[in-house]
Structures are given as structure tokens and as C-alpha cells.
Design a binder for these strands. Structure first.
Length: 518
RNA sequence: CGGGGCGUAGCUUAGCCUGGUAGAGCGCCUGGUUUGGGACCAGGAGGUCGUAGGUUCGAAUCCUAUCGCCCCGACCA
């Protein structure tokens, strides 16, 4: 705009409002994250180290995610089953890489009875020591493998396509709500196939399911690719993954799918008689996503006023806040609120009736509003006496920020709600994609690479995602990890152009995705 | 497991150095006025100061041990 162009009237300076979450993202991202989870009423730390209490709002979110993903797993031919929480210790001795990967983080059950000891306190009864300790599953390849070994005799018994929704325990050094907890919830798919080709296809198919789920339900754009050897699942031949960027520009693994080759089949004895009458080992896969996805969504979408939940997985998509200041109008307002809720519930979006809640609690209107803002409810509707008189409602879309509010005719609010939810869903995705785009760079020299990942001052954060060539050498990978704490998150399938490795000058088949990660 | 820090009411914390029997804010309860962007007034409940020893007439405070938690590192969905 040139100097002599008349300027439009400057927008009224917004009244400064304290952000609901302190510190803000810019001030202290890790602390902001903890506060968002807490303020959003998703979960809290429990008295058990590393274990969280998932509160109703967080659990409701997980249930929505489960429901959607479960349908996708069924649609790709899988069935649910359930296997034991406890795994005999000896099962872990069967696959060398696997045991090495998990041994350091296993909870082990050694007794089956308590008694009062000499000091008057309860203790595990020495007489009740287990002959073979039981490991609380950190993952179920071995115990499910043992079952598959019983179930499979012929190629006609294959494939086996099973998923389990379960909790697992990994005794991690440093737990963080949702991102890395000692106990967490997940689904783990375990399949067994006649041929490598089928198993490889399954591995890629399920990664595709995860990509779709992340994009269309969680509003998370992800990079899709394969892990390098150093980042591979213990015991796997190939590990595929989806990687998301969150708002401190770090990468987070949001889902994995492994081709296990015949490693676990050999360890567990999953063998069958082939079409040619030969005895062969099955080719197996496993794949999973966890409650970490909740943490990923928080870090990707939330703002300085709290959560912003994608409507497709929000436990409540629309909350109605009756404004009933005067005793004499209260009954009418509540009645109108319930009527509005019923009309909204009769609407569908993405093939499902809208999830609507009327918050009738008698607490201050502002407090109530902020609670739902912090919980990330996609749409809030305020309905008061003035609206009753005018036939309007005040509608607030969470993705537009905590201050957003528009007064529209009530009928429009009802008929337009599916589209509004769609807009919020799309808005979150677009914002996350734009953020990732802004912080992803193709880098061609070692100097640029190091500069990109080196903060210029204490407050500044590192660059983000770098797409850079790599000669395939684990030594280069290790050196960069040591220097910058940057690792190869994956070799994206979309990167196919050969080039030159900036670290060695050697040829590179394609660019790798480099980042700091959770 | 190595390095640093911290345990006082539901939460955040003051008091500790220099011992004298615990205070605040938020939250909670009651009543009233309020409620369209985090309300206000008045009254009230709630703590054996992480635990166990020791020193002392007397310990939240000093000493020893122990447990737990947080941060940094290695590990990791």
C-alpha cells in the first residue's frame, strides 16, 4: 500500500485478554503442553509413577478415535481378539533382537500372593514365587505368535488378520502425559501371511490406513515413509511410519507398521504346509497406534487458550451454553436450549448424528465459556433471552480463536452446523499443513543443514524438518544425531529423486526427512 | 543409572539462612448481589510442614537416613 492511499479505518485494537494457558507456546512449549492437557481436562498424572489417569473428556476422545479406526480396521478385513496381559518370560528369549529391544523396560510379575511379613507390612509371599516370571506385555508379538503357531497348519489357514485393543507397559525413563507413559493404550494388529508379497502389501496397506486416519479424522498432515535400520522396531525387517510435525517443529511418530519377515514366525513356530507340500514359515506383520496420538493432536492444534479438537473425534462437537441471568427467563432459555440441541442432534455430519451437549451447570457464564474453550470443543453456542426474542444464537468456532463469535439466525445455526464442523475440521488441517510447509526445507549443503538445526539464541527453536540427501551410512546418521540431536524420521515414499549426500559427497538414492523428535 | 533441584491445605506457594508451635492466593462450602467474555461482598471448612530417627526445654526450620517427585542425559509409541 502506498503512502498516499487512504488507509481503511484501523480495526479497533482488541481488548487484551490474558491467554488461558500460561506459559504460552512461545514462552515454554513443554510446560504449555502440560498445562493444556490439564486445563483441557484430558488427563492427569497419577500416584503411580509414569501412569496417568485419563479423565472422561480424554477418554471420550480416545473412544471416538477407537470407533473410527476400528471401523477402518474391520473394513480392511481384520477382526478383534484379545490376548493375555502376561507373557511368560521364556517367550522373550525366542527373538534375539526383540528381547534386546525391550528387556530394559519390562515390568515383571514374580509372585501371586501377598502376606503379612515380620514387620507387619504386606509383602509378596516368598512361598508364592512364580516358577516362571511373567512379563507385563510391552507388545504382544510373542504371545500372539504362540497362538498363531497353534492355529496355523496349512496355507489354507492363512492369512490371519487380527487386531487387539489393549494396554501395554513399557518402563520408560522419562514419562510425559500421553507422549510417553509407563502404561498406555493402543491397538496392535498382528497378521500372518503365506507369502512375503502379501505381508508386505499388508504392511503398506495399514500404513495407508493410518495416514488416512491421521489426515481425515485427526486433521494431521503426516510424512509417510520407512525407518532406517537404526530406528527400526526390534525384530522387524522393515518399519514404516507416519511422522507429524508439532508446533515446536519437532517430529513425532504417530503410527507404525512393521514387516517382520519370518523372524517372529521362526521364533514362535508359525509354520504351515504350503501348496507344494513343503513346510514353510509364515510372513508376519504388526502395526499400531497409541494414545500418543492424543498428545500429538494437542501439540499440533492447540493454541494459547487451550485445546482445539478436530470435530470428527471431539466427544462433544457442539456445546450449548444457556445464558440465564434472570430467574424469570431461565426456564424459557433452558427449554429453548434443549429444543435447539434436539434439532442439532437430528442433523448428521460425516454420516453420524451431531454430538451435542447442553451445559446446564449454574456457574458463571464466562467461566463456563472458558472451560469449553480450554477443552477445545469445536463449536460453542450461547443462547440467552435476547436470542429468544430475536430468533438468533451466538456461535463460536474454536479454530477461529477464543474470541470468535457471530450472531446468526437460529435456523441457520442448525442447518449450517454440519458445514461449520467441516470448516473447523478443514481449518485445523490447513493450519497444520501450512505450519509444516513453512518449516520444512530442502537442504543441499552440510553448512546449511547444521545452521538450520542450530538455534541462534536461547529462545529460538531449531528449524523444523529438513529434506536432505543421505548416502545410507549409519555412521553419518549417528554423527548427526550426536552433533545436533537430529535423526532421520523416515525415508519418505514421495522422495524418489537421486542426488548427492551433503555430508559425504557420495551419491544418494533419495532425500531423507531429518528432524528433532519426541 | 549419572548430574542438578524440590517435598508445607485440593492447586500454586511464603516462612527455613538466624529454632519459639504455620500464613497467603486460587479452589471449595454457606448466604446475598450477579451471569451475553474468566463476577463481587460477607462468613466458613481445610495443614501432626514426605517419612523415620537424632540434637534441643522446644524442630516446618538444625543433623542423619530414607522414600517420592521434577529438570538435564542415555532409552522410547
Amino acid at each position: 500500500m502506498s503512502a498516499d492511499t487512504p488507509k481503511p479505518a484501523a480495526p479497533k485494537p482488541a481488548k487484551p485478554i490474558e491467554p488461558a494457558i500460561k506459559p504460552t507456546r512461545a514462552q515454554d512449549f513443554p510446560e504449555w503442553y502440560q498445562q493444556v492437557v490439564r486445563a483441557g481436562d484430558l488427563a492427569e498424572n497419577s500416584e503411580v509413577r509414569g501412569c496417568m489417569v485419563i479423565k472422561p473428556w480424554g477418554c471420550g476422545l480416545w473412544e471416538q478415535m477407537q470407533q473410527a479406526l476400528d471401523a477402518m480396521l474391520k473394513a480392511t478385513g481384520h477382526q478383534n481378539a484379545y490376548f493375555p496381559l502376561f507373557i511368560p518370560l521364556s517367550y522373550f528369549e525366542k527373538e534375539a533382537a526383540h528381547v534386546e529391544g525391550f528387556a530394559k523396560e519390562c515390568a515383571v510379575v514374580t509372585h501371586h500372593r501377598l502376606e503379612v511379613g515380620p514387620d507387619g507390612k504386606m509383602r509378596p509371599a516368598p512361598s508364592a514365587q512364580l516358577a516362571e516370571p511373567l512379563v507385563v506385555r510391552p507388545t504382544s508379538e510373542t504371545i500372539i505368535g504362540a497362538a498363531y503357531a497353534r492355529w496355523v497348519q496349512s496355507y489354507r489357514d492363512l492369512p490371519i488378520l487380527i487386531n487387539q485393543w489393549a494396554n501395554v507397559v513399557r518402563w520408560e525413563m522419562r514419562p510425559r502425559l500421553f507422549l510417553r507413559t509407563t502404561e498406555f493404550l493402543w491397538q496392535e494388529g498382528h497378521t500372518a501371511h503365506e507369502t512375503e508379497k502379501e505381508a508386505q502389501e499388508e504392511t503398506e496397506r495399514m500404513l495407508g490406513v493410518y495416514e488416512t486416519f491421521a489426515r481425515d479424522w485427526l486433521a494431521l498432515p503426516v510424512f509417510v515413509g520407512e525407518k532406517t535400520e537404526s530406528e527400526r522396531f526390534p525384530g522387524a525387517v522393515r518399519t514404516l511410519c507416519i511422522e507429524a510435525m508439532v508446533q515446536d517443529r519437532k517430529a513425532i511418530q504417530a503410527g507404525t507398521s512393521h514387516y517382520l519377515g519370518q523372524n517372529f514366525a521362526k521364533a514362535s513356530g508359525i509354520k504351515f504346509q504350503s501348496r507344494e507340500g513343503r513346510e514353510e514359515f509364515a510372513h508376519t506383520t504388526s502395526w499400531g497406534v497409541t494414545t500418543r496420538l492424543i498428545g500429538t493432536m494437542v501439540m499440533a492444534h492447540a493454541d494459547d487458550d487451550g485445546l482445539c479438537l478436530p470435530p470428527r473425534v471431539a466427544p462433544t462437537q457442539v456445546v450449548i451454553l444457556p445464558v440465564a441471568p434472570k430467574e424469570d427467563t431461565r426456564a424459557a432459555v433452558f427449554e429453548a436450549a434443549e429444543k435447539l440441541a434436539a434439532e442439532l442432534r437430528a442433523q448428521t455430519w460425516q454420516g453420524q448424528p451431531l454430538r451435542v451437549h447442553v451445559d446446564r451447570r449454574d456457574i458463571g457464564g464466562g467461566t463456563k465459556s472458558w472451560e469449553w474453550i480450554k477443552k477445545g470443543c469445536p463449536v460453542r453456542i450461547e443462547l440467552g433471552p435476547r436470542d429468544l426474542a430475536q430468533g438468533t444464537v451466538a456461535v463460536c468456532s474454536r479454530d477461529q480463536g477464543a474470541r470468535h463469535k457471530e450472531f446468526i439466525p437460529q435456523a441457520d445455526a442448525v442447518t449450517g452446523m454440519p458445514a461449520r464442523l467441516g470448516a473447523v475440521q478443514q481449518g485445523l488441517y490447513d493450519r497444520a499443513l501450512a505450519f509444516r510447509f513453512e518449516h520444512t526445507r530442502e537442504i543441499g549443503t552440510k553448512e546449511d543443514f547444521y545452521a538450520f538445526f542450530t538455534a541462534k539464541n536461547e529462545k529460538e527453536i531449531h528449524g523444523g524438518f529438513a529434506l536432505a540427501h543421505w548416502n545410507g551410512s549409519p555412521e553419518v546418521e549417528a554423527k548427526i544425531k550426536e552433533d545436533l540431536k537430529v535423526t532421520i524420521r523416515c525415508l519418505p515414499f514421495t522422495e524418489t529423486t537421486p542426488g548427492t549426500c551433503p555430508f559425504t559427497g557420495e551419491p544418494s538414492p533419495r532425500r531423507a526427512l531429518w528432524a528433532k523428535s519426541y
